[in-house]
Amino acid sequence: MLKRRKRSILAGSALLAWAAFAPAVMAERIGDAERGAEIYRKCAACHMVGAQAKNRIGPHLNGIFGRKAAALDGFRYSDAMRRAGADGLIWELDKLDAYLENPKALVTGTRMSFAGIRSLDDRHDVLAYLRTFSDKPRDIPEASPTAVAHEVALAPEVLAMAGDRDYGEYLSSECLTCHRKDGSDRGIPAITGWRNEDFVVAMHAYRQKLRPHPVMQMMAGRLSDEEIAALAAYFAALE
């Protein structure tokens, strides 16, 4: 246990180092399913698992691994989740991990009002637990090569970066070809009035190709940390 605690603390600071050490941990197994069952209690109020599981406030999570986002019949997903599913978001290990870490980073506009689980270990333990509710848990890779290549959490200095609004205004002109400045959604989601942090993590998630949309992956892919901060500052301030 002591070892685990220490690892958690390490994990906390390793978020800053983009989880550089994590591959070795993941290669062994996803995490501790028993401990995950404990942590899952906070999820269980909305998400059922197991033989009697059905959709409640959230969809049931049996067989979640490898399933397309928003794919269960009979559950009313948010528009944002349905869009992510159509764009090609598949609940693979790394996507689930990113979603658990910060739901909004992966799917802005998700109905899951959950702050996220900061601890890498805790997330992996929950995922190990969820994995036991898959049809063929054996077929799920213990750690796919991409499983820990990404980390949504950003270094505090990246998150805290003060954006250059003038630069953001210029850069935004590219966004506004498709996204409407008045914040309406006519087939392309609104991006005005987001919290600064939500905007920044979302753009980084596109840049890392965690979020599925090819246009956005391309647009975000060539933005620097400073440019993302500049855009966030501009859009956050739009009326």
């Binding site: 869009r83 159509a86 498709c178 087939g187 392309i188 060539r222």
Partner: peptide
Amino acid sequence: ESFISQTGEDAALRKQTYEESLGWYAG
């Protein structure tokens, strides 16, 4: 950098791409 739709994409994605084009026109 570039991208292009792929043949064999599912109907949901194609429909979404069309709806996205309507959004782009409005934008």
